[in-house]
Simulated scan of single mutants.
Amino acid sequence: MDQEKILVIGACGQIGRELTAALRLKFGQMQVLASDIQAKNNLSTEVFPYQQLDVTDADALEKLIADEQVTQIYHLAAMLSANGEKNPKKAWDLNMNSLLSVLDLSVKYGVKKVFWPSSIAVFGPDSEKTNTPQQGITEPSTVYGISKAAGEYWCKYYFEKFGLDVRSIRYPGLISYTGAPGGGTTDYAVDIFHHGVEAKPFTCFLKKETVLPMMYMEDAIRATLELMDAPVDNIKVRTSYNLSGLSFSPEELATEIEKLVPGFKVDYTPDFRQQIADSWPGSIDDSAAQTDWNWKPAYNLEAMVSDMLLNLRALQEI
């Protein structure tokens, strides 16, 4: 096939919505098939073409890949850190077994490229907390992190054993105005904006001084496309690339929002997610991504806050 046929699994999630839109701009609307567990009649027509899919159903996944003659897969479906701790075995089944199905079927049907996201959750209490290196200690403390750490090595294995071109990014916390928080430990940094734009007080579930790596979604989508466009010989990391955008604490974010929303109030009531956050790095060394495929973020904290509030206010007016 001369034309790419791209399957996005988990297209209705936080990353999936925006990545699907970006891929359609690049390859054409009909060349990118969105899929998720949601029924079609629950979705707006903008996500079409769309196929309902439970990715843990390997037979249904195989039929879709074969029928659509898929050439690239972006496998985004996962249960995130906080939700995963509430149902660890279900999280493992979704996060791990679905990846193995995607890898096996990609080899079987000659899929040219696979993208699978990892996370800073692969790091743990003994990892270096400042400028965590690409080859740093990975000692995850959540089932989400365990599944991502294991998945990285499965991706490397399928590249080395079968020549499958699997590429991956360890995403930091992602911030977007297009979707609601999805059950992650960094999701306070999305929810806080929804309160801020309505000038409502916000209760943060992390301590005010907890610094975590974050990234604006526009940067994350661009990084994903740039990684997948890079020549195969440039991809030196076959587990998952560290990726850095910006690091800040809840207090620093609240201060920046208050500059544009005078009187905005935040209080802090840490819950079980604080322990998860304490196990993660505060900043990431992404020099490998910079060297191998020229990665560079575009947004700092001030620019991100301004753009988030601007877009959320515009959505309120629709």
Score class of each variant (00 low, 15 high):
Q290R: 15
S141D: 12
I120V: 13
T210D: 03
P297Y: 00
T56M: 10
I284W: 01
A254P: 08
R273Q: 07
L53W: 01
R313L: 12
I9L: 09
S168M: 07
K86H: 10
A60E: 09
K265I: 09
I318G: 12
M304T: 11
P49T: 07
L103Q: 04
T178G: 01
V197F: 11
K90Q: 14
A39V: 00
V211K: 15
N41M: 05
Q274W: 06
Y74N: 03
K207D: 13
L80P: 09
L309E: 05
N311C: 08
K40G: 06
F272D: 13
L246T: 01
N294V: 00
V211T: 13
V211Q: 15
F264L: 12
F115V: 06
L80N: 08
Q14P: 00
L99A: 02
Y241F: 03
M79C: 08
S244L: 02
V102E: 01
T224N: 11
H194S: 11
Q51E: 10
Y216R: 05
A180N: 07
P231Y: 12
N87H: 10
T178W: 07
E317W: 08
V190Q: 06
N311K: 15
K208A: 13
L94C: 02
F272A: 14
E139S: 15
D233F: 13
H75T: 02
L105P: 02
V70C: 10
G124C: 02
D307I: 06
A91K: 01
L312V: 09
I73V: 14
L310F: 14
D104V: 00
Y188A: 08
Y188E: 08
V143R: 08
L80Q: 10
